[in-house]
């Protein structure tokens, strides 16, 4: 089974962010961070797997490959799964930076306004 994961440092941040914003699972938080990275148009130069936290079957409800193809049509991706993981890391770090600057930041502040 193919597995993916986060580095210990990012994993800790992800857990903290999960509790702060009220996500149910770490996976929900990591998915949100992945989406946030895309929204912020983050590009990853090198991609590597960081751990073995989740089996890829955990992400059945998201077609990350298709999303990556749509959002990064000009980027050549040898391994979309690794790119997916890399964007999760980037998103988690980015959100953590925001929280460091604004500790009262809420999930609503990260979502589009109504």
């Amino acid at each position: 089974m193919v597995t993916i994961g986060l580095t210990p440092e990012v994993d800790e941040i992800n857990k903290r962010l999960m509790r702060k914003f009220g996500f149910d699972t770490e996976k929900d938080m990591a998915l949100f961070a992945f989406a946030y990275a895309i929204k912020e148009n983050i590009l990853c130069e090198t991609v590597t797997n960081k751990g073995t936290k989740w089996g890829t079957s955990s992400f059945e409800d998201i077609d990350y490959e298709k999303i990556l193809q749509i959002c990064y049509p000009d980027t050549k991706m040898d391994d979309p799964l690794l790119y997916f993981v890399e964007l999760m890391h980037a998103g988690i770090r980015q959100i953590n930076n925001l929280v460091s600057r604004e500790p009262d930041l809420m999930i609503s502040d990260l979502l589009p306004k109504e």
């Binding site: 989406a35 999303i67 959002c71 589009p112």
Partner: peptide, 12 residues
């Protein structure tokens, strides 16, 4: 929590 499961969609 239940709504946040799909929050990524809100961004994407």
């Amino acid at each position: 929590k239940s709504e946040l499961k799909n929050a990524w969609k809100g961004l994407l």
